[in-house]
Design a binder for these strands. Structure first.
Lengths: 188, 188
DNA sequence: ATAATTTCTTGATATTTATCAAGAAGTTTA
DNA sequence: TAAACTTCTTGATAAATATCAAGAAATTAT
């Protein structure tokens, strides 16, 4: 089970606590196309992607803007909604059949009470996410569309066979046509 | 003292703990132009901006890229460096005479030990920062240079009188010339 | 206060990226 | 498997933004 492996590896947690945490997650599946959350609704859950591909996207003037694509080993949620009970800013939808381990808000809050240093571990985890986003912002400030593509492609080659490029283009801040042309230039 | 007010307001903490935390911060000043941290060095401290303006910027092919501008009420640090002891990714420099309250890594870690729910409060604080950055990424994905300017200007009018526009342009992901033209269009 | 330096503005032009359109390729559905 | 639908590619063109340059304005240093 990837979830157990992931938490052990990244959270540095005792065997007993690991089992306690993992036992609070419930297995479920999403069929391709199904929604995990919808924008403006409350997202009172957090999930680990055991396998499959999931798209997080917002809307702006009737356009869908892909914020991020999550694959095996990622956690998904609308963090603002989960923590502050605000309406979700994003839609989250499965781009392929997806296996999840899910914890609801109630149990999520319970971890903090039951596992002594959980808040610290989670703080560090969220800090890592923050740093990743800082770097992503820096990329937008300092790179052209082509450079953004190259950098991302270098680290995520597989994705380009698995899902429509239109979503990757959006996530990289360019149109599908621009991405197509950039790729055509490189491939030949 | 802004620091005390800020922590009380945003961290929801008991009087006794508040004093403990605040007492670990030390007052200091930066003259305009002075550096708080330099890129590639270890940044083992975290500071609260009591007053003044500070620029966080990275470098890319000999160009300075302004990642963020911090003013009164913000915390500054290179988070990656502070938490994981990596070399700082950013330079941090005062754009005006600045008053700071600073805590070093050692005392910063101490708070977590001494204030019982500190990690939880800090987790929530960092989560807020994360959400802010998610929204910033979404802005880059969904807005033109002009829209980014308008949105930012609406919430930060004062800044445009106080510091060179060249930094604001960079932070908004455009050149100084583009920002100048956008502004000329609006003002008349 | 003057000189030196930096920043801002504006014009001319180049480059990047978006938009619109239409056929090709690929995928899903019945 | 054929039809329907979606995505991808490519061309033509438009719009947004960058680059280079030079003078004006503002700021800083002497």
């Amino acid at each position: 089970m990837e979830l157990e492996f992931y938490i052990r590896t990244y959270f540095g947690i005792s065997k007993a606590n690991l089992e306690k945490v993992v036992s609070l997650f419930e297995y479920s599946e999403l069929k391709k196309g199904e929604f995990y959350t919808k924008k403006d609704q409350y997202c009172g859950k957090l999930s680990f992607v055991e396998s499959g591909i999931v798209r997080i996207y917002g809307e702006k003037e009737h356009k869908e803007i892909t914020q991020w694509i999550s694959t095996k080993g990622h956690f998904i949620t609308d963090l603002s909604s989960l923590i502050f009970k605000t309406p979700a800013r994003f839609n989250i939808q499965a781009l392929s059949d997806t296996k999840l381990f899910t914890i609801n808000k109630e149990n999520y809050d319970k971890i903090g009470q039951e596992v002594s240093n959980w808040h610290e571990l989670e703080k560090i985890f969220i800090a890592k996410c923050f740093i990743t986003l800082e770097n992503r912002v820096f990329d937008f400030l300092s790179m052209s569309a082509e450079e953004r593509y190259l950098t991302f492609f270098e680290n995520n080659k597989e994705l380009f066979h698995q899902i429509p490029q239109i979503y990757l283009a959006s996530m990289l801040g360019m149109t599908a046509e621009t991405l197509s042309r950039i790729r055509a230039k490189k491939i030949r």
